[in-house]
Design a binder for these strands. Structure first.
Lengths: 225, 225, 225, 225
DNA sequence: CGGTAATCGAGACGGTACGTCGCGTCTTCGA
DNA sequence: TCGAAGACGCGACGTACCGTCTCGATTACCG
């Protein structure tokens, strides 16, 4: 298993030159500029946060002209999205053989990732994107966050192997696992998260799995409301 | 039961006058100013989001001098937090008698609330607060979001009534229910949410309850699954 | 006699606050800002010329925010015009008693003034204003350059005293004196101007006066063309 | 006599290829490029003035690469000087036989030329050059404006023919005639210039000639007037 | 006739200034 | 003293140009 940087084919928000095919005319864009910009953007963001995230500073630090930045990204939000996504991209190449193993692996990875600067940012960007038209556009190409996609794939595999009762909703299980972990990280004070035994999220997965199992046995639960 | 606007006595971030005793001297503060400011702040935030949230605009719209705003809130983050919280406050006076009933009630209410403008605001603000030190500080006095507090209260009552196995972690169940609902709302496209049968969240609660039940039967969490 | 700074009543391009009468409301403009700005503008212009004249630099040097500058002048041209005019204003309070004395006084003063940084600028601004709509607007309130007005006044006095033949065109004499001096300064290399005896411009005046005198004697000159 | 466009052999600021001898190797320069560039430069300068004179715009309009422009002129000032001079060049081939005739011819021509777009351009450029070191350098090779040279030649001829008293300063007379005409054009509102009888400048010349004549009669310049 | 070398249009590059806008503070008047 | 108004210093925004550079394509000559 691994959190691998995505060998992505997508440009990730970095504006393509209008022409589709190879080089058109004029001096070609220096690919190094893009890399330096994204790296400087991450550095500035890490130091000063979003409110202190200034394109002027990115330009100053990377030695890139502002013009060249605006040639690639339409505004500072887009640059930040690209910068963070580049690193945030991973494919949960999780395959322990069992559903539980996969989910535990995922839950731990996601928890740790969320506590990372990059993870925190990508998550928040996802939320902001729901609200900000500006950000939403930058995010539009890829509406489903990576972690949601990853969980669903794992669950589908489990279903195929018969580890989950037939008819179990993939989305439902995914919401439970990913949502619970996210909620956990965002509502637990940092010092408690640090102190916490690693099996906190394991328990979480167990409850979910037990729940789906049990429900298939007792048809309609305590539905006497 | 009800989602009641809190008849709060708390000042909610609105700075008290330095002197402890009531009025000191000079012209007393106009209470209308506070209301107009908060209302204008909500309007601006809704229209332009955090990055476009400008105190100058709030002042312009409400006809309040910037001085008067800074007399009450230390910076624009504090004003926004106060503005959103004022409306967002509710107490889940949920008491159906059974744990499942309460949780289902809560899950439905939270789901609907999240899709509300106000709910979206408070949720986003919470996320923003995780990242902006400025906002975080404004949030610090009251770190736990309302919905988390509400869920925990419900679960504690259930534990007391013996509806949950002894030793069940309150935080864990709360994370599962609240997190799953939140995740559900934010990762499901709007049109699917609309079309969805109301018992989507009911199922969710059932799985969680079944999970906690089952786990108490099988000794070890790291089962043979 | 003297080249006196004009005790001007005009605001000279510094934008008035919209309201006509005294103070309206809000914090009043700091008059010191205007002074510091104009002075810094002159300094920057002197050092770097028009092409290096940067508002950013003026702001930096004077410790004034760019916002405050743009509150007063619509663009950098207007600021420079104001800065230069403030110093350039003079009233040729020339009154030696005789026409020749006045004209000589004026011619010397104008020659020396033109060789000044400020004088050179005001002259060039006047020329540029003939061509640039932007500058023209800034200059519009005062189409006649100061030196033209001054010369005409002197000549009119001379006419009144009978020192010039009746019917002599004021404009014609003014063009001759002011134009010749201007042309002289702008076409003579600097080192020659420095070396030159002061009576160079005196001669000039004498030729003009002699010419007007003679023409009144011999009706139509050598008009045999 | 005539105001002839100069059939100039001079390169006029257009940089020679470093090698003295004709063509070295490689593709020869396209002569059309130079013409298109100068013409576009004049158009841009006429429309937007010096401050709005942008090489990018010249390149865009003429369809010439910026590289090709910098191959020919070292900077935008040089391009502009070349562009304006190309059209502005004339040789005052004036020879009516008499000094007065020549001067009147010159004065009329200069007056009309100044009111021309081209004349205005070259005049303004000359003034700008006095102030912008960049422009001045571009002008340096040819410091005396065409009209000054022309007047001086005329006057020298007059002196040689004995039409002026011996010892009369050529520069002085030239300043008077050329300066007065220039001043006249630039300080008289356009509608008055239009309405004006053509002999306005004739008078001017007469005064100057009369003045020089008279002065030779009365011994001391510093007369008793 | 193929190679070499300069030119051509195009446009990216690092900079710097533009003119605008917002923050949080300050300073006035009138209530 | 508060409240409205708005000036203040600061600094980021996104745009436009400068003068340089690097592309591929073109066009002469030279061997």
């Amino acid at each position: 298993m691994a959190w691998l940087p995505l060998s992505g084919k997508r440009t990730l928000g970095c504006q393509d030159v209008p022409v589709a095919k190879a080089q058109r005319s004029g001096r070609p864009r220096d690919p190094g500029v893009e890399q330096r910009a994204l790296s400087a953007a991450r550095a500035v963001y890490a130091e000063r946060g979003w409110s202190g995230f200034s394109l002027d500073e990115v330009a100053r630090r990377s030695g890139i002209g502002k013009g060249s930045l605006y040639l690639r990204w339409p505004d500072k939000a887009a640059l930040l999205v690209a910068a963070v996504r580049e690193r945030a991209r991973f494919i949960a190449e999780i395959d322990t053989g069992s559903l539980r193993g996969d989910l535990v692996e995922f839950a731990r990875g996601w928890r740790d990732y969320l506590r990372t600067d990059e993870g925190a940012l990508i998550f928040r960007l996802g939320v902001d994107a729901t609200f900000s038209p500006q950000l939403a556009e930058a995010f539009a190409e890829d509406p489903y966050p990576e972690h949601i996609r990853a969980t669903r794939a794992i669950i589908r595999r489990g279903l195929a192997r018969g580890e989950l009762p037939e008819g179990t909703s993939v989305a439902l299980v995914a919401d439970l696992v990913a949502g619970a972990v996210t909620n956990h990280v965002h509502t637990t004070p940092a010092h408690l998260l640090d102190a916490q035994s690693p099996d906190r999220v394991d328990e979480l997965v167990d409850v979910v799995l037990a729940g789906t199992q049990k429900r298939s046995e007792v048809p309609s639960g305590t539905s006497d409301l």
